[in-house]
Design a binder for these strands. Structure first.
Length: 422
DNA sequence: TCTGGGGTCCTAGGACCC
DNA sequence: TCTGGGGTCCTAGGACCC
């Protein structure tokens, strides 16, 4: 499609075993051992990251911790430290942004750089990549791998092939040839299910995929099939991979969820968790300056069956109290009464940035709440999460609601569990 | 094996409107 | 009274990624 002289140079930088490597910086005795980050071996939960030593025993991310323990009982199991990873992610970013003005952190441990036009300053791609690699190592003590190509997707696959601690440049024009022998699973976006579907069609490698008629793929797999056809030929066809490196965009949703240590049907356990989740979502919305038009509840039972139930609001909100009210209503409207719950989630979607119109009375009320909650956020920043009791804040909210009763939500007496029907 | 938490994107059906 | 068609919004679920 594009002229080779106009082709871009994209780097994909991927940190090697990022969480494990950061933990090793804090505890050097972990070095060289089988390390599993994610929690204790008897906890509910999955592996966040595994050291290369642990991977040799078949341990990998997303594996249940209990299974990881069975596969590799001698491994050291450590809790994850998200704050540490964020700090190191920022350090990596501050190195990267010296190499290009167009840097995009695609996740906490990987980034794309548009290196087009940096040759005069930094030299040809491989040389620039080596410098970048050394700079990251020198300033963070962490290893990374770098993939270089004309397209984001190919750069990403290349960095994966370069691991660990390597650099791989796919020469312009060689994209399809580089991808062809790889299993389809290597294409980002092709998971277990798509892999199986493709296998049913006799397709195992990216080359098999590329030989297939684009129209056939489009018919069989819809929009995604067309993108897939492009990907197999080394093009950033459709979707996210098409966007410019460094293009910022607002978050599309904000959510928090919690899996109980033990399944529960106890409302004195369930309600506070729902309140906490709603408050966490509200807080993030206020940080982003966004309002949610839809509130969604997620409910998972002991047998792992999971439902989601959503409600669209007439007035988008960023207030803990309203988020909680909606989530609570959805819970009582859909919970199989008495059934034990494994997980609860609160999700805010259809996010809007502008201020919404309200009646003067509502506006006044809502402004007071907003100010109060922002003050609470600041307190939490200063003194930690426990400084402001959420339960108290919410109790206050209900007292006020009951008093003014704008939403018609009845005050709940102790022990009264019935929820009003719509 | 007994399955986290935070996201993005896509599909499909139904309601509703013109 | 045998049954159009397009567009948009809403909801539920699922694949996938790190």
């Amino acid at each position: 499609m594009e002229n080779i002289f106009l082709a871009k140079t994209i780097f994909h930088v991927d940190m090697d075993a990022f969480f494990v490597s950061v933990e090793e910086l804090f505890d050097p005795s972990l070095k060289g051992k089988a390390v599993v980050v994610g929690g204790r071996p008897n906890e509910r939960g999955v592996v966040s990251a595994a050291s290369y030593e642990a991977r040799r025993f078949g341990v990998h991310s997303a594996l249940p911790l209990r299974t990881a323990y069975k596969l590799c009982p001698q491994a050291v199991f450590v809790d994850g430290h998200p704050e540490r990873y964020r700090v190191y992610s920022k350090r990596v970013f501050s190195v990267l942004e010296r190499f290009s003005p167009l840097v995009e952190m695609a996740s906490i441990d990987e980034a794309y750089l548009d290196m087009t036009g940096t040759e005069r300053l930094l030299g040809p791609p491989l040389k620039a990549a080596h410098r970048l690699h050394e700079a990251v190592k020198a300033e963070t003590c962490l290893n990374c791998s770098i993939g270089i190509s004309t397209a984001r997707l190919v750069a990403k696959v290349a960095s994966d092939q370069a691991k660990p601690n390597g650099i791989l440049w796919v020469l312009p024009g060689q994209e399809a040839r580089f991808l062809a022998p790889l299993p389809v699973r290597k294409i980002p976006g092709v998971g277990k299910v798509t892999e199986k579907d493709l296998r049913g069609l006799g397709i195992r490698t990216v080359g098999d995929l590329a030989r297939l008629d684009e129209a056939v793929l489009g018919e069989r797999f819809g929009k995604w099939g067309l993108a897939l056809a492009g990907k197999a030929r080394g093009r950033d066809a459709g979707g996210w991979f098409d966007s410019e490196v460094g293009a910022e965009s607002d978050p599309k949703s904000v959510s928090h969820e919690h899996t109980f240590g033990e399944d529960t049907a106890d409302l004195d356990v369930i309600e506070p968790v729902l309140a906490r989740l709603a408050a966490m979502v509200g807080r993030r919305l206020r940080e982003y300056g966004l309002h949610a038009r839809t509130v969604q509840l997620k409910l998972r039972y002991s047998d792992f069956s999971t439902i989601t139930r959503a409600q669209t609001l007439s007035d988008p909100t960023q207030l803990d109290t309203e988020l909680f009210e909606q989530a609570r209503r959805l819970f009582y409207a859909n919970w199989k009464t008495g059934a034990r719950v494994r997980l609860l989630g609160v999700h805010a979607g259809s996010l809007e940035s502008g201020a919404q119109q309200m009646s003067i009375l509502e506006e006044d009320n809502s402004r007071r709440w907003k100010a109060a909650l922002e003050a609470a956020d600041r307190l939490r920043d200063k003194y930690g999460e426990s400084a402001v009791s959420l339960a108290k804040a919410l109790k206050g909210a209900f007292a006020e609601r009951t008093h003014e009763n704008p939403a018609g939500l009845p005050g709940r007496k102790r022990g009264q569990r019935d929820f009003p029907e719509k």
